[in-house]
């Protein structure tokens, strides 16, 4: 049996004395679309940061396709085939849309820190970037400065940069946040398309997106996974219902 695409072993993270992630263990199988849900402040984004190397974990391990990536800097994790997007759009605002994508493909094509290739002559980089632009429907906006794109277009570009390097484990942090209904539908369609044959881990607030997209769902509450199962069984899980209803009820109390 092959190793899981992603394996978290008793991961902990504290900021000062405040524990945020309190012992998360999780397996994501190869080719699975895995959603992480949970109330606000549950630690979903922090968990993403721990996996992708943005923050160091306090203790515990992260394994990518069986290899230990705990404590590695983000660029080394990316080179091992894990790529992520951000909840707050994180692009190269002064570069054109095309250049944004091309920056995403360069390392994976082996150009590294080359100053002995002229970038316009790299056909493979250009063709790869163009095909990504087609996939994310931004081919017509190719030469626009990325900072001038509309919000939904920037979100699409964010996904484009994430998949450009051909990573086989893709992590998306709230890809549809702030989008309207039709934009969300487009985004889900896009995510489905680009994650074809890959492992996908997604944090998402929109439950219809989650149940539409995910093969498996993990519920994170207070820095711990209280359930990890198929969508149907998560829906029926009393602990999950309580966690969500509980926060909803307490929020209503706070408002009143």
């Amino acid at each position: 049996m092959s190793a899981p695409a992603l394996q978290l072993v008793d991961l902990h993270k504290s900021f000062g004395v405040t524990p945020i992630i309190r012992g998360v263990s999780l397996d994501v199988a190869l080719g699975e679309r895995h959603a992480i849900i949970g109330p606000n402040g549950a630690g979903k984004s922090t968990l993403f940061h721990l996996i992708s190397g943005r923050f160091p974990a306090t203790s515990g391990k992260v394994l990518l396709k069986g290899g230990d990536i705990t404590g590695l800097p983000p660029y080394l994790i990316n080179r091992r085939g894990l790529s992520r997007s951000f909840q707050v759009t994180n692009i190269f605002p002064r570069l054109s849309v095309f250049e944004n994508i091309r920056c995403g493909v360069l390392w994976s094509l082996g150009y590294r820190y080359s100053f002995w290739h002229l970038i316009e002559r790299l056909r493979d980089a250009r063709e790869r970037a163009e095909s990504i632009l087609e996939q994310i429907n931004l081919a017509a906006r190719r030469d626009v400065q990325a900072g001038l794109l509309s919000y939904a277009e920037q979100r699409a570009l964010e996904i484009g940069i994430t998949i450009a390097g051909g990573a086989d484990v893709i992590m998306l942090d709230e890809p549809t946040a702030g989008m309207n209904r039709s934009e969300t539908e487009h985004a889900v369609e896009l995510i489905r398309r680009v994650s074809e044959g890959k492992t996908l881990v997604v944090v998402e607030h929109d439950m219809s997106v989650v149940f539409d997209l995910a093969d498996r769902i993990s519920v994170l509450v207070y820095g711990q996974v209280i359930a990890s199962d198929t969508p149907e069984r998560i829906r029926a899980n009393p602990a999950v219902r309580e966690a969500y209803l509980g926060t909803a009820a307490s929020l209503e109390h706070a408002d009143a």
Binding site: S83, N90, R94, W107, Y113, E120, G165
Partner: peptide, 24 residues
């Protein structure tokens, strides 16, 4: 106009994102 030159611009614009596309 080389890959390195382009990544300089990327690091200028958004160093964090550059780390997440494989560049130190």
């Amino acid at each position: 106009r080389t890959p390195m030159g382009r990544m300089c611009n990327a690091v200028r614009d958004n160093p964090e994102r550059a780390e997440f596309v494989g560049y130190s």
